[in-house]
């Protein structure tokens, strides 16, 4: 049975240009003990989904059940089993890391002794000793995010919600955070995370839901999604734009679907099924045809590719849709 079940979630927000559908009938199911990634660009509605499931905002329509409890009817019971960490660290700047965590423990009603003990454990676990006894302000974003994540883990929640947990983190902190999340999953925690990075969804999740315009537009494992959009892409850069037509014909012969040509006519790209072998064949044929190359290689699909394939538009919507997403991105 699914520990998170959402059906028909709808939310309309007001904006300067009129009503915007932050969510337009979103369905979601997360089986117990698994990791689900919500993948989508800014403004797709990811944060809105997380805020609804964590009882922070109410849906205009639809139904959300978390651990068997309706989030609208009984938010307090839901809050007893979840942990939340947002993309914008919700920590008190004037308190120390320890005081922040102790306060959260007390507000979960662990009692003073247990709250302090748990705060100490988390300080050790997250390598926060430095921030433990000094006010949080003055520490790096990465440190704040770790304190925020530690705050989400004060009770070993059954379900952990992570809204863009690594946005704005340096690569080292990102890897460390991935490690912590993987460990939690091994211990049986269910995780719902949002991300803009296919790679992150790939690394951490069992299952990915691609979100656009407040709906799930594709769902499946990372392999299934990648197969749907073509696993790898072969990319070549021509010396002479005049060879474009001939090169395009060669790539089309070895790729899945139509090759795309960049604006200057020199970059050509196509999705391929069997990566390295396709590249070898493309290079051999281009060589035989006497077409000179600046560069050639393979790359893995990005979120942009997923989007282009699934929606026909690129994943860059800085406009509005989900104002929270957009604004916070600018902050971080």
């Amino acid at each position: 049975m699914s520990i998170i079940e959402a059906t028909g979630l709808t939310k309309t927000c007001k904006s300067k240009s009129g009503p915007v559908h932050a969510l337009a009938g979103l369905d979601l199911a997360v089986p117990r003990g698994t990791v689900k990634a919500l993948l989508g660009p800014n403004g797709a509605g990811k944060t809105t989904v997380v805020k609804m499931l964590t009882t922070l905002i109410r849906p205009d329509a639809g139904r959300a059940i978390v651990d068997g409890i309706n989030v609208v009817e009984d938010p307090k019971t839901v809050r007893r089993v979840i942990g939340v960490s947002g993309q914008y660290a919700a920590v008190d700047e004037n308190l120390t890391g320890f005081e922040n965590l102790e306060m959260v423990g007390r507000l979960y009603h662990l009692g003073g002794t247990a709250a302090r003990r748990r705060a100490h454990e988390l300080i050790d676990l997250f390598d926060l000793t430095e921030a433990g006894n000094r006010p949080v302000k003055g520490f790096s974003d990465g440190m704040r995010r770790r304190i925020d994540l530690a705050g989400a883990l004060v009770i070993n929640p059954k379900i952990l919600f992570l809204d863009e947990p690594t946005t704005g983190l340096d690569p080292r902190s990102r890897l460390a955070l991935w490690g912590v999340i993987k460990q939690l999953v091994t211990d049986g925690t269910t995780v719902l995370l949002t991300t803009q990075y296919l790679e992150e969804a790939d690394q951490l999740s069992d299952d990915i839901a691609v979100i656009d315009d407040g709906r799930v537009i594709a769902e499946g494992t990372s392999d299934q999604l990648k197969a749907q959009i073509g696993g790898h892409r072969v990319v070549v850069a021509l010396i002479d734009a005049g060879d474009a037509a001939a090169a395009r014909e060669v790539l089309g012969r070895h790729g899945d679907g139509e090759p795309t040509v960049s604006g200057d006519g020199r970059g050509i790209e196509v999705a391929v099924g069997d990566g390295p072998r396709a590249l070898q064949r493309v290079l051999a044929d281009l060589g035989a045809a006497g077409i000179g190359l600046h560069d050639a290689g393979m790359r893995r699909p990005t979120l942009d590719d997923v989007f282009l394939k699934l929606t026909g538009h690129v994943a860059d919507k800085t406009a509005d849709a989900d104002a929270t997403d957009t604004k916070l991105e600018k902050v971080t």
């Binding site: 805020k51 964590t54 009882t55 922070l56 307090k76 019971t77 809050r79 007893r80 979840i82 939340v84 947002g86 919700a90 920590v91 008190d92 959260v104 507000l107 979960y108 009603h109 925020d148 705050g151």
Partner: peptide, 9 residues
């Protein structure tokens, strides 16, 4: 920080 408070029981 209000979001943190509101997500707690």
């Amino acid at each position: 920080i209000i979001d943190r408070f509101r997500s707690l029981p």
